[in-house]
Design a protein around this nucleic acid. Structure first.
Lengths: 220, 220
DNA sequence: GCAAAAGTGTTAACAGTACACCCATGG
DNA sequence: CCATGGGTGTACTGTTAACACTTTTGC
């Protein structure tokens, strides 16, 4: 069981890596073993919690990896999960037991076994999901500004979105609630904070894979 | 390892089920065990081949299922694959060793273990994928007509698409090559056969998960 | 008062939707 | 000659995409 943990530091989309193994020379994904009475998802939650102290986090099964030679020592199957965490919540909760560190997805070190493939696939999946559904909030604090959200999407897709179209599109979902408060200290004018309309958002997340096109609405 | 095998009989979207287990009283998905030197995908291909004699088939990992009590006898993890097969190719290749039979997805018998969940998830995934990418061809013979294709999509989504809009959308992908030949015997006028522009299609399939939105092209 | 980021509106092109008629042919 | 399914076109509507100027405020 391995975990691809995504974060966002305000500029870069990042992945959390640890030093693991006997030699502790190479970086790897956070991982662990499935316990006898755990479901896969429970194990993924536990592993995430052990490293970050976080629970109630966006978590999704990515894929099972089972190349017979992926681990040169023993034949193992790994089910990879990926999660989106709010880096601010995490901060110092980072378990001291692991040497863990965030890396930009555009500047990763060599990784153990097939962990590089896992990260690549996770990035693809994240891009895929985030393009179809408004998921970005999962990587931002409770309160965030539209420019922050745009920077996140810029980072995910390594591009630059048009801020006018971007904010129109986001706001048209009616998923964001504008707060009276402004972000201070970053820009002179200050940007309004927003927060997610949680009930509405959760209704959506439950059904990402449930969306059935109505007649003539296929989207090729 | 379990396999959700989809087919299309011209009217209904169907799933291939077998009688398995000691008592052979309940239906189940086709499954098998991973061999020591096989990758997951190789195992899925082998299992599919053993039952249907087919290879070179659309095959995709669905999910790993690992509820601790999914199999009441032993703790097992199952990686489920789903595949789309051309029923016509298959026909009598059906291995006699297994009692196998096609069921409409709208009329399934009770299934072993969590196989019902697997099928449900596979149907969702198929709907999801087919709405975003032109995959339907995988379930039809080499040569097929537009009305056949429309019937397939009607069956997948349990709805009725508008034939004018449907054919315009399909043809606008430029993925279909019109043949000179007409289907005879089914309708009086006869419908033209088409076949897939394979190179173009394969380029696409390789990148279903690679599609990166260009700026301002997110699709919420 | 100016630099830097926030915020907002308009237009043109395109895609999606709804809808109806003619065509070819076997019987 | 008529019933059945095959094939096509058009007008309307909504969405996407491209683009530029004004506002606020810390310094």
């Amino acid at each position: 069981m391995d975990s691809i943990i995504f974060g966002f530091d305000g500029e870069q989309l990042t992945v959390l890596l640890v030093k693991r193994g006997v030699e502790e020379r190479t970086w790897s994904l956070m991982g662990g073993w499935l316990q006898p009475d755990e479901s896969l998802e429970q194990a993924a939650e536990r592993i995430l919690f052990e490293l970050t102290g976080l629970s109630n986090v966006y978590l999704e099964q990515l894929n099972a990896f089972g190349d017979p030679y992926r681990d040169p020592i023993a034949r193992t199957i790994s089910v990879a999960y990926f999660s989106l965490v709010k880096v601010a919540d995490y901060e110092s909760k980072l378990s001291e037991a692991h040497q863990a560190s965030w890396f930009s997805i555009y500047d990763l070190p060599p990784l153990l076994f097939d962990h590089g493939d896992m990260v690549d696939l996770a990035i693809k999946r994240l891009r895929y999901i985030a393009a179809l559904h408004p998921t970005g909030f999962e990587l931002l604090p409770e309160k965030f500004t539209i420019p922050q959200l745009k920077k996140l999407y810029d980072a995910i897709y390594n591009t630059e979105f048009d801020k006018r179209n971007f904010s129109r599109k986001i706001l048209s979902t009616n998923l964001l609630i504008k707060l009276d408060e402004k972000q201070r200290g970053f820009s002179k004018r200050g940007a309004y904070f927003y927060q997610v309309n949680l009930p509405k958002y959760q209704q959506l997340t439950n059904s990402f894979l449930n969306v059935i096109p109505s007649p003539d609405t296929m989207n090729w």
